[in-house]
Design a protein around this nucleic acid. Structure first.
Lengths: 211, 211
DNA sequence: GTCTATATCGGGATAGAC
DNA sequence: GTCTATCCCGATATAGAC
């Protein structure tokens, strides 16, 4: 194995280990010694590859962000009517969060942490593209007549994402509340949401009255 | 001033300061020295009142939980029809989160932190009562015919709370996304939600067809 | 009950051999 | 590029005077 390759591999391994630990316990809770031990290298070696703990964290976050830039393209190009595509998106998005739960947690931590300046960076670097894409898709669903045109597509997108994110972050707690039958069943959660969402966003053709 | 009173006052002041700092920066980021300085007392004094940093944190969390046990009673006894009461609840709840944002953040941190054993404790000690109460109210709205009876009241409650919590925790980021006109306007957020929620949960009297 | 001073430990980061 | 050994500082926590 060529030395340069070995180098890259070690660096990647350190970063990967760091992401695991940062995601699980947070920046301050994790020491460089802990990362070194978990990665099976010396502290000094880590400092050889990353000039500080902060930089290691930043790069962890960056990698998590890159990984999360994944596709709601499935939805854009998806098959079926608007509802099927939206439901497909919710399922795919939720599934992705759990599958890449390490990266998701890393970012979620950063959101809740709410350090000054972070919000704007996260908004622009991580969420912006996907969010705007989702807004565009919703707007398109409105133009096609599937969704009521009086709704704000930006709000609708926020509602969709929020519903998913809340489930992801609260799953543990939901499971400990009584009567929650969707606690470890994301699909069931999405289905119940869609039941309300679909009826709530349909064009009002026969102007229902309140009871 | 009697010495015992002075005592109580100092203890409360330390705890109050600690809650501020823990909520803002998290447990690990805040040192006892920082709390001591902010509270205007010596480190040793804090250790006199709290046997460890951990205990100080636990008590901070406990106080935050107590404070958050506030009323969705306003909703239970509220006036107006089911929709007005639900909207009133969402507004009151959101308002309360922001007003007691220190306590809310403290708890939210703990949720995201997801330390082993914490989820169950939080579920039982903090959320359980209010959650069950909300479920009961929703169920009552269903019995009265305002909400579709086929919906799971537990899910509906989760949706309501999740919508609010997500807004609270993501407000900073939402403000940095394009087209978000509810970023610093909780009432507007709630109103848009209610627009969808109400139509989505109404009994289906004339069985709308999908487009 | 409150302080100053101190003990002790673990943190991030560096030096220098290999 | 990787290691061992070390520096230095700030952290929690304690001792003991007032």
């Amino acid at each position: 194995m060529p030395p340069s390759s070995r180098n890259e591999e070690t660096l990647h391994h350190i970063l990967d280990t760091a992401m695991d630990l940062f995601a699980r316990d947070g920046f301050d809770s994790i020491s460089m010694s802990a990362i070194a031990e978990a990665a099976g290298v010396s502290k000094a070696n880590i400092f050889h590859h990353f000039k500080s703990k902060d930089e290691l964290y930043i790069q962890s976050l960056r990698r998590a962000c890159d990984a999360s830039h994944s596709s709601l393209e499935a939805m854009a190009n998806g098959e079926g009517d608007a509802w099927q595509r939206i439901e497909g998106f919710l399922r795919a998005h939720l599934h992705q969060m759990f599958q890449q739960s390490r990266d998701s947690r890393l970012i979620l931590r950063e959101v809740v942490e709410n350090r000054p300046g972070t919000a704007q960076r996260l908004a622009q670097d991580v969420f912006r593209n996907n969010f705007n894409r989702l807004v565009a898709i919703i707007a398109e669903c409105q133009r096609s007549g599937a969704l009521r045109s009086t709704l704000d597509p930006v709000f609708v997108s926020t509602l969709l994402l929020g519903t998913n994110v809340f489930f992801f972050q609260s799953q543990e707690i939901l499971q400990h509340l009584e009567g929650v039958d969707f606690g470890n069943d994301p699909d069931r959660y999405v289905r119940q949401f869609m039941d309300i969402f679909q009826h709530g966003t349909l064009p009002i053709e026969n102007s229902q009255e309140e009871v």
